[in-house]
Simulated scan of single mutants.
Amino acid sequence: MKNPKTLSHVDQDGRANMVDVTEKSVTQRFASASGYVQMQPATLHMISRGQHAKGDVFAVSRIAGIQAAKKCADLIPLCHPLMLSKVQVDFSVDTQLQRVNISATCKLAGKTGVEMEALTAVSVAALTLFDMCKAVDPEMVIGEIKVDRKSGGKTGDWVRSESN
């Protein structure tokens, strides 16, 4: 893993600092993130068939993830408030690994990236899914929340390597 040369959210005296993006160019920004919730086969079967007593777990979790991306700056202290143009949260059921895979995509035209918004969308979607199912499966595990891809800005395109 590469170490950053400098931490952009710390000033020269080591104090927390919101990055000044005033002089940055507006570019098309994109980020995708993913994670999963692993659970018992019976729980996975129940929610994939829409048989949970609380209702459509995926619909509620999707809305929660979208809402979370929009509220990222309220949750992460040094994030800039962004005018997101697209937030998409998707789920796929993996019966072999007994889990629900979660992915989120965020887009905008702006001066700063949307990686934190994509990560927040995945995280809150996973937490919502966990919350709705914890009574029937308290041993669920949320895992591997990570940025998969990003584009835009002066650093350009980045894709997670297979080994990470």
Score class of each variant (00 low, 15 high):
Met1Lys: 13
Met1Cys: 12
Thr6Tyr: 12
Thr6Cys: 11
Val10His: 00
Asp11His: 06
Asp13Val: 00
Asp13Ala: 11
Gly14Tyr: 04
Gly14Cys: 05
Arg15Gln: 15
Met18Ala: 09
Met18Asp: 00
Val19His: 02
Asp20Thr: 02
Val21Lys: 11
Thr22His: 00
Thr22Cys: 00
Val26Gln: 00
Val26Asp: 00
Arg29Tyr: 09
Ala31Gly: 05
Ser32Tyr: 01
Ser32Val: 14
Gln38Phe: 08
Gln38Asp: 07
Ala42Arg: 13
Leu44Trp: 08
Met46Val: 10
Ile47Ala: 01
Ser48Ala: 12
Arg49Gly: 13
Arg49Val: 00
Gly50Met: 00
Gln51His: 09
His52Asn: 14
His52Leu: 14
Ala53Asp: 14
Gly55Ile: 06
Asp56Leu: 09
Asp56Pro: 08
Val60Trp: 04
Ser61Val: 12
Arg62Phe: 08
Ala64Arg: 01
Gln67Tyr: 13
Ala68Thr: 09
Lys70Pro: 11
Lys70Arg: 10
Cys72Leu: 04
Cys72Arg: 03
Cys72His: 07
Ala73Cys: 11
Ala73Arg: 13
Asp74Glu: 15
Leu75Asp: 03
Ile76Trp: 08
Ile76Thr: 03
Pro77Asp: 15
Leu78Val: 03
Leu78Gln: 04
His80Thr: 03
Pro81Ala: 03
Leu82Asp: 01
Leu82Pro: 03
Met83Asn: 15
Leu84Gln: 06
Leu84Arg: 01
Val87Gln: 08
Val87Ile: 11
Val87Trp: 04
Val87Asp: 08
Gln88Ser: 15
Gln88Phe: 00
Val89Arg: 10
Asp90Glu: 15
Phe91Ala: 02
Phe91Ser: 01
Thr95Ile: 05
Thr95His: 12
Leu97Cys: 11
Gln98Pro: 01
Arg99Cys: 10
Arg99Gln: 12
Ile102Gln: 04
Thr105Glu: 15
Cys106Trp: 06
Cys106Asn: 07
Cys106Tyr: 07
Cys106Glu: 08
Lys111Asp: 02
Thr112Asn: 05
Gly113Pro: 07
Val114Gly: 07
Val114Leu: 10
Val114Gln: 08
Glu115His: 06
Glu117Ile: 09
Ala118Tyr: 08
Ala118Met: 05
Leu119Trp: 09
Leu119Lys: 07
Ala121Thr: 10
Ala121Asp: 05
Ala121Ile: 12
Val122Lys: 04
Ser123Cys: 09
Val124Tyr: 13
Val124Cys: 09
Ala126Asp: 07
Leu129Ala: 10
Phe130Lys: 12
Lys134Asn: 04
Lys134His: 07
Lys134Ser: 03
Ala135Trp: 05
Val136Leu: 15
Val136Glu: 15
Val136Trp: 13
Asp137Ala: 05
Glu139Tyr: 08
Glu139Thr: 15
Glu139Val: 12
Met140Tyr: 06
Val141Arg: 08
Ile142Val: 13
Glu144Leu: 12
Glu144Ser: 15
Ile145Ser: 04
Lys146Cys: 14
Lys146Asp: 06
Lys146Gly: 09
Val147Lys: 03
Asp148Glu: 12
Arg149Leu: 00
Gly156Pro: 05
Trp158Cys: 10
Trp158Phe: 10
Val159Cys: 02
Val159Trp: 02
Arg160Ala: 10
Ser161Asp: 12
Glu162His: 15
Ser163Gln: 14
Asn164Ala: 14
Asn164Cys: 07
Asn164His: 13
